[in-house]
């Protein structure tokens, strides 16, 4: 579903992503972890088309993101780390707006919005302006916007920051449900327990390079920590 090959991104002399290669298959949740500035957000932004790669290629649903960006983008849903939306727009307008950009008919949008607002316990809030929402509610609206058009690949940058425990639980269930239906998920996070709980594979990124990748047990054995070690201990072993 997602194929990243030798991806490099430079900002002037600074190398943010260095020859990164990742493959994510349908039904997989791939968690990308790493210190601040390791290139997680940059990688996701390149896949979404917010940044241009310096070198290498990114393919989403067999479409190259630089050569066939429209087709590639139609297959993905993006949840950014910062849920910035125009303050004068209501939650409902925003969801219709994004649905419209993905070519969803109005009736389908109404149906999906109703269902997802119920799932995230947002019913009754959708007619307020974004400037009035809490960070958590803004985040929930961006999650709904990403799920609404039923993408094949979900790109999630810090999924549960600002969410209350109940909403975080709902979000995690939604991501797992999404992958079980055949969707692929790329999750960039510092919340290691979330990655440990829902990811099928984990990649450790440091200074733009993928220093380790594999399932939780594979990472444990590679990092030479104890068999019951947490992801936090594995992370420390790879990055310190």
């Amino acid at each position: 579903m997602l194929s990243i090959k030798n991806l490099t991104k430079k900002f002037g002399p600074k190398v943010a992503v260095d020859r990164l290669s990742i493959e994510i298959k349908p039904g997989e949740i791939f968690a990308l972890i790493g210190p601040n500035g390791s290139g997680k957000t940059t990688t996701i932004k390149i896949i979404t088309g917010l940044l241009q790669p310096t070198d290498g290629s990114v393919t989403v649903a067999d479409c190259d993101v630089t050569k066939q960006p429209i087709k590639a983008k139609a297959a993905l849903g993006y949840i950014p780390d910062e849920p910035s939306i125009w303050s004068g727009m209501t939650g409902e307008e925003f969801l219709h707006f994004t649905g419209s950009l993905y070519g969803m008919p109005t009736s389908r949008r109404i149906e999906r919005i109703r269902s997802l607002l119920d799932d995230f316990a947002l019913k009754g809030l959708e007619k307020e302006y974004f400037e009035n929402y809490s960070r958590g509610n803004k985040q929930k609206f961006t999650i709904i916007a990403a799920l609404m058009h039923e993408p094949k690949l979900l790109l999630i940058d810090e999924p549960i920051v600002g969410l209350d425990p109940t909403s975080a639980e709902i979000a995690k269930k939604k991501f797992v449900e999404f992958s079980k239906k055949g969707g692929a998920v790329l999750l960039a996070t510092h919340t290691l327990p979330v990655a440990e709980e829902i990811a099928t594979r984990i990649g450790v990124l440091a200074s733009g390079r993928l220093v380790a990748t594999g399932s939780m047990s594979e990472l444990r054995s590679r990092s030479k920590v104890s068999s019951g070690a947490s992801l936090e201990q594995v992370y420390m072993a790879f990055t310190s």
């Binding site: 409902e92 219709h96 419209s100 109005t106 949008r109 919005i113 009754g124 809490s134 509610n137």
Partner: peptide, 16 residues
Amino acid sequence: AEPGRNLKNSHPVSFP
């Protein structure tokens, strides 16, 4: 911010 405290017109409004 709590849901259910701001129930206004529940009629769906589309955009555009």
